[in-house]
Design a protein around this nucleic acid. Structure first.
Length: 112
DNA sequence: CCTATGACGCCGG
DNA sequence: GCCGGCGCCATAG
């Protein structure tokens, strides 16, 4: 493994993202804060790598703090993310999640 | 080795 | 309330 580095946290990110219940969404900041990464950028970076993976990573459930589909362009299709969310009951308008606060899910809830 | 950039977010003016 | 800058860690050039 040439890429040992600290890519370990990526594993945790995937775990958290996979823990997001269907119909719910989370944010980069919440995940970063929960994992104490210190930077929401790391979450985005990790998820970008996940796009390459064929694993069941529901990355479409992760949006920025504004509820905006900032990563929609990284999916196979620009509308893939919106479609996936609407398919799960999450309304999306103008590349933005409707009732963002309502569907928001915090990793800590998994413990609760 | 150093600089620039990124699926972000907070703080200050 | 809007605009600009800084931090944060990793990768690419």
């Amino acid at each position: 493994m040439t890429t040992k580095a600290n890519s370990h946290y990526v594993e945790d990110v995937y775990e958290v993202v996979r823990s997001i219940p269907k119909g719910r969404i989370s944010t980069y900041g919440a995940i970063a804060d929960f994992l104490a990464l210190g930077s929401a950028r790391m979450v985005g970076w990790a998820l970008r790598q996940s796009s390459v993976m064929d694993g069941p990573i529901p990355a479409h459930r992760v949006v920025n703090r504004l509820g905006h589909l900032s990563g929609r362009l990284h999916f196979p299709d620009p509308k893939y993310m919106q479609r996936a969310l609407e398919k799960e009951g999450v309304k999306v308008k103008n590349d933005t999640v409707v009732d963002f606060d309502k569907h928001f899910w915090h990793p800590a809830e998994n413990i609760l």
